[in-house]
Amino acid sequence: MHNATGAVGDAEPVIRVTGLAKEYRVFDKPEGLLASVRALFRRRSRTVEAVRGVDLEVARGEFVALLGPNGAGKTTLLKMLSGIITPTRGTATVLGHVPWERADDFRRRFALVMGQRNQLWWDLPAAESFRLHQEIYRLDPARFARTRDELVDLLGVRKLILQPVRELSLGERMKLELVAALLHEPEVLFLDEPTIGLDVVAQHTIHAFLRHVQAERQMTVILTTHYMKDVAALCERLVVITGGEILYDGSLAEIVDRFTTHKIVTLDLDAEPDPARIARLGFPCEVRGPRVVLRIDRARIADALPELLRDSGVLDVSVEDVPLEEIVAGLFRSADRRSQPAEASR
């Protein structure tokens, strides 16, 4: 149970959300001069439900991915959990605190990193921003120096901390943003698209860094991203949100089992197959030169493989699950189709 200081027992969820909803009133901007003048006196508004009654529990040390198409409500949910905005309905506690009450004790224990926003002083070296963090979070100088050195070494950015932030590349800046966010050793970390626009090397470095820090500190992390590589590299649990509602909440392995019926079998043949040979394979397939990609029902895979390999022209074979991108995109599309008739009837 929560105690007087807002501490949470190990068995208690670190994040508990019940029926959380956020509505915005938006004003339509009419087209044309006359309509614009008319709108000065009478504006047409409508209510947009960004998040609709979300329920969620996250345990200490979990690394959860929050996936959803643009405008699904991921970032709005993250902003409510970090106390930036107040919900229209529902309750939430993070580390035993109601986030939007913005208690200092709560704000000292979490961090938020937004991939599309810069939180470091733009014209100054990151070392200056780190120093400010030390003062804001009242960090012991020796401990601050130790943590800072450890983090910059893990990310390999020691040489960059004395260079003005505006002179750094996007990847370098993001690494320094992560250092700044983790200096006060937060128990909960909210990451909003931290790898957006980064090259593959920077993405890998950040994945390795986050994995290491999260495991070492037993930090609870919620990550929103559009990159399935982030999810596959970091998260065990996946929450899919569309239209402000949770569509799926479970493990990565489970989403594959639950939402796919087949596996992808790739055969490398000795030559480009003729139509007769393709027909003999007996499965829906896609031919790319001498490579044939088959979609085979999971239940039939054990029987089908020996049969396929009996073809003496098979040089190589690989069996994989349907890519996560494909599964998630399918989920988004089905949610979209379901919501369209509902919207039309409104």
Binding site: S82, G83, I84, R108, F110, R117, Y137
Partner: peptide, 15 residues
Amino acid sequence: RTGGLDAVLVKPLDA
């Protein structure tokens, strides 16, 4: 306008 205020509101300091 840009949402930069978000970063200020999460700091344990009087906004």
